[in-house]
């Protein structure tokens, strides 16, 4: 039965991984606006490289 402690340790590790991923997502501003990204995919992509640059600028934490 003692092995369950090790299993809990692993499961917590995985859970912490997801928590960290969530915290990173929040800090990088992915939750600041949840309306325009949904509309954005509907437009034709013509902007090329510049759009990538904007997105990276946007995702930097303030």
């Amino acid at each position: 039965m003692q092995v369950i402690v090790i299993l809990i340790g692993f499961s917590l590790l995985v859970a912490v991984g997801f928590l960290v991923a969530f915290l990173w997502a929040v800090r990088s501003g992915q939750y600041d606006d949840d309306i325009s990204p949904g509309m954005r995919i509907l437009y034709d992509e013509k902007k090329g490289e510049s759009s990538n640059q904007i997105i990276t600028n946007q995702t930097k934490p303030n």
Partner: peptide, 30 residues
């Protein structure tokens, strides 16, 4: 509005790009 403001670069080539935050009615322009 999002579409137009995100395509400012077609109006002026010196604009590198623009990004709209709809909820807060903001546009970020580079």
């Amino acid at each position: 509005c999002i579409w137009l403001l995100e395509n400012l670069s077609t109006l002026n080539s010196s604009i590198l790009g623009s990004f709209v935050n709809f909820v807060r009615k903001e546009v970020h322009i580079t």
